[in-house]
Design a protein around this nucleic acid. Sequence first.
DNA 1: TCTGGGGTCCTTCAGCTC
DNA 2: TCTGGAGCTGAAGGACCC
Length: 434
Amino acid sequence: MSRSQITRGARLTQADLARGTDGADGHRDDDGCPILHVDMDAFYASCELRSRPDLVGLPMIVGGDGSRGVVTAATYEARKYGIHSAMPMSRAKRLCPDVVILPPDFALYTEVSAGVMAVFRDVTPLVEPLSLDEAFLDVSGAIRRMGPPAVIAEDIRSRVHDEQGITCSVGVASTKFVAKLASTRAKPDGLLVVPADRVVSFLHPLPVGELWGVGEKTEEALLRLGLTTVGDIAHTPLDTLVRALGQASGAHLAALAWGRDPRSVEVPEGEKSIGNEETFPRDVDDPEVIRRELLRLSEKVAARLRQQGYAGRTVVLKVRFADFSTITRSRTLRSPTDVGRDIYATARDLYDALGLQRARLRLVGVRAEGLVDAAEAPRQMLLDEPELGWREAEQAVDRASARFGRGSVRPARLLGTGEGDGFGGAPVAPRPRG
DNA sequence: TCTGGGGTCCTTCAGCTC
DNA sequence: TCTGGAGCTGAAGGACCC
């Protein structure tokens, strides 16, 4: 695999890394740049290529191959055809009829991710994962032991490559947001240092859409104001930005445009919500089918809550109609729960209250928010509650699933609805024919 | 072209209490 | 007793990220 590094910008050369300085005055480009953003290159696809070396160099994508699947990850060879993640599969296949399609294997990606994160935590305890394939690191405390940030970054890149067989790109900067931009520009398989005194000149020529937090809508709003580069944002009055984008976003973007980002690397404390949703292979208008799917999703959410030791206080129902419009309805319970029965009862009530008759639905989802530690969660005890209730029954199901496989025990209503993933398995909606 | 699934954060609005 | 404002919480929706 190539170990090439980008040569533009302020990236240190191998010679600089070996010498330990970047100039005659002994000043290093990475002085005052303790933040690293490490991002795996085409992560899911790279994981697959480890066991499929015959596919190296070919256009390959990972994603669901169903009627409504989208691309989850694409190799750089596939990207040359214009394929990118979140693109509908049907379109990807039109762009590159020979593209190799592999179904996602999240267990594998989770395992590789754990190995990569272990490399990071070997360097510093200050690791903030953003997803399976990227993380921020604050290496301030490792400099004395391991050397300057750019050397640490190169060490991480080598270890990830040697131990996990995949490549990553690293951005090194004084702030999280600049480090993140730097890693993106270093891709693939590169390292980019943005010196603290060159942040503004690095940022201002960039198009507004490259800023972290500027998506399609915000970019449209900025373009309407005639702002096309980060420099344009920097020289726009704060009032104007706030009027166009709201208080928080306007002030945030104004600060970022000058490279000001006070956010430190935070080790996450825990999840804030846990949910599951399912897009039907075809739109569904049968309330019984939809209630059954809500039951399956509720049981799945509850099992995940119990597995991670959480209970949720608010249940959120999500409904997406055939025209892609989406609504949510939520209800806060008197006490947090990790019982599928309770979550389902709430989700079903919320659904019934919508009075949809036979509206065609594309997707339903169930989410638990307001998570608390299940062991410390107050529980609502009823006067006539039996000594062993649904919670204990579902814990028994957890034990059976651990022993005999997921889906081995499930609610009677879900029997015969397909092979199980979690409790319910495949979507209960009718499958496309032919 | 036709849009998955799992999340987080922000804004707005309504209802409640003081 | 009535009224208005502040502050809080819950609900809903939207935007964004990977």
